[in-house]
Simulated assay, not measured.
Amino acid sequence: MRIEGPVKPGLRMESADGRRLVLLKGTVPVLFARQRATHRGVHYARTGRYASPLPPLRAERARAAAESAAPGSAEWSERWAAYAEAGLRAAADGPLHTGEWLLAPDAHRWFVDANWPKLLAHDPDRGHLTWFGYGDPVEDARDLLPLRALSHPEAPRVKAYRRQYREGVLPPVFAWWISGLNSPVVLDGHDRLTAALAEGGRPQVLLLSRAADAAWVARWAERPVLEYEKRVATLEGPLAPTRIANESRMLAARLRSIVHSYDLTRAWPFPGGAPGWDAAASAHVPGWAPDADR
């Protein structure tokens, strides 16, 4: 996606010295975060004031999308990406700002299957995400951060989405990659996330991120293309066409992951710097005192 504006979006990250981060929706803080000095993780505190920039999804749209393309297919993902793009472009409080963006399925296999159940079992409003896991609690190894508390699996709206999951028509979760957190956050679809996990499944996820620079993509694509050409040039015999086809598929997957690389998330300076951030955190998440020095 090529976005022409605004320069500063309504939903945005702001930062201050000392690895201090805050996610704002307009002037309202929805998430405070503090990176650890050892770069092993990030402490966070939700304020309970997040609301999706996208309108609620009606069941009729979910079923229509499933009828027009097989759920989980590339065409199905593209249709939902187009839906989300239109909604985010129209949103006054969305994350899009001037530049190139991607909205697509995860090409980097970020989500570890074993980490999904932890979201239902351990999703505190004030918690910690481990980046490497050494010496940290096992439950802190989560790959997705909800921006509000997840609803109970038996909540009416979640139960409706659980039916959609069983029918195979549940829309994807829209997530946003934030490099300062080294994690995607749930932009839209908290209840759909809960529904899929409550049914013992995994949600389909479309990830929003800033697109990597074209020159960077070209540089990183050079080596796999050269290696592919060398391998293919040596293939001979009756199995050569099959082996070339296999090499081509692997090259396509590698290039796709390079093209879909996540660029750094833009963060604006927080007014008042570190003292202003500390005061805002005390006001919106009183008593939160993350141990960010270890």
Rank of each mutant, 00 (worst) to 15 (best):
D123E: 11
R19H: 13
P290G: 14
A155I: 08
W80V: 00
L226C: 07
E75W: 08
A90N: 08
V112M: 11
V232P: 00
A114W: 10
S257L: 07
A51N: 05
T27N: 11
E75N: 07
D125Y: 07
Y161V: 03
R126L: 11
D213E: 12
L129H: 06
R162D: 07
R109Q: 14
E14H: 04
Y134E: 15
R162S: 10
G18K: 05
P117E: 01
S68K: 15
S68R: 15
A91N: 01
V232A: 11
T98K: 01
P156H: 13
F32A: 06
K118N: 11
E222W: 06
R266D: 10
D17R: 13
R266K: 12
A90M: 09
R202C: 13
A66N: 04
S52Y: 00
E199Q: 09
P71A: 08
A81L: 00
E67M: 14
A37I: 06
V217Y: 00
W176V: 07
A240Q: 09
L264I: 12
G237C: 06
A69H: 04
R157V: 15
A92M: 06
G276L: 11
D93Y: 01
V169L: 10
M13N: 04
N182V: 14
E247F: 11
G276E: 08
G287S: 09
L255T: 05
K118S: 12
T242E: 11
L102W: 04
G180W: 02
G99E: 04
S179H: 04
P53V: 06
A155L: 08
A62W: 03
W76D: 02
E167W: 10
S257V: 06
H108Y: 09
L150P: 00
P56F: 14
H284T: 05
W268T: 01
W131C: 09
R162N: 10
R12P: 03
D188P: 05
M250V: 13
V169A: 07
V232H: 03
A59S: 15
D123P: 02
L187R: 01
G180F: 06
V225P: 02
E67T: 10
H284F: 14
F174V: 14
A92I: 00
G99C: 08
R142L: 00
R256I: 07
R249D: 08
R294G: 14
A281M: 14
E67G: 10
R89F: 12
R20M: 09
V285D: 01
P224E: 07
V217F: 07
A292I: 10
L208S: 00
G127A: 11
